[in-house]
Amino acid sequence: MSMAIPYTVEPRPDTGLNNVKIGIWLFLASEVMLFGGLFAGYIILRVGSTDWQPGSAFGLSVPLAFTNTLVLITSSVTMVMAWASLIRKDFSKYRLYMGITVLCGLGFMVIKYIEYTSKFSHGYYPSTHIFLALYFTLTGLHGIHVIAGMGYNAYLWGPGAKMWETAPEQFTNRVEASGLFWHFVDLVWIFLFPVLYLL
């Protein structure tokens, strides 16, 4: 005989949490350690380098990065607003906010692309200098996270949104979990911005 897995939607009474909530936070805990490793690399290489150069030495554009920070922060706000719209049972608002979130992610990647190509056109590659190696690796991995979050959000905006008709509670949980990941990606950028562009 077959039994359904409990607490996929409703919280377990003694923990007060559903499975998805625990799962996504566990994933984020491991992400903290992943970026911890990357930042540890940054610190050791920076203090140990015989020839450290800041980002400005390679013409990293602060205005572009500043814009990108605003773009990501905005997308974080629209993400929570998308979730809040579902709580208010306002599906069309959800669609709107989630759409903006995805577009902001796209905008972030477009700006990133402009930055990357401008570096390449000046002959700055990851192998050029240890700073650029860190810059490309850290922003590259962050970019992969942005693309992943954007992809899942796009799914929740498009085909995945059918679930709103059949299981609204579960769909709201999914949007919340996706949001947690998306905010984490924003959080990482909040640190990457000063570390790579300003210091």
Binding site: W25, L26, L28, A29, S30, V32, M33, G36, G37, F39, A40, I43
Partner: peptide, 13 residues
């Protein structure tokens, strides 16, 4: 969970 992660994060750095 996050407390634990932050402690290990600080060790790591």
């Amino acid at each position: 969970l996050m407390g634990l992660a932050v402690v290990f994060f600080i060790f790591e750095l």
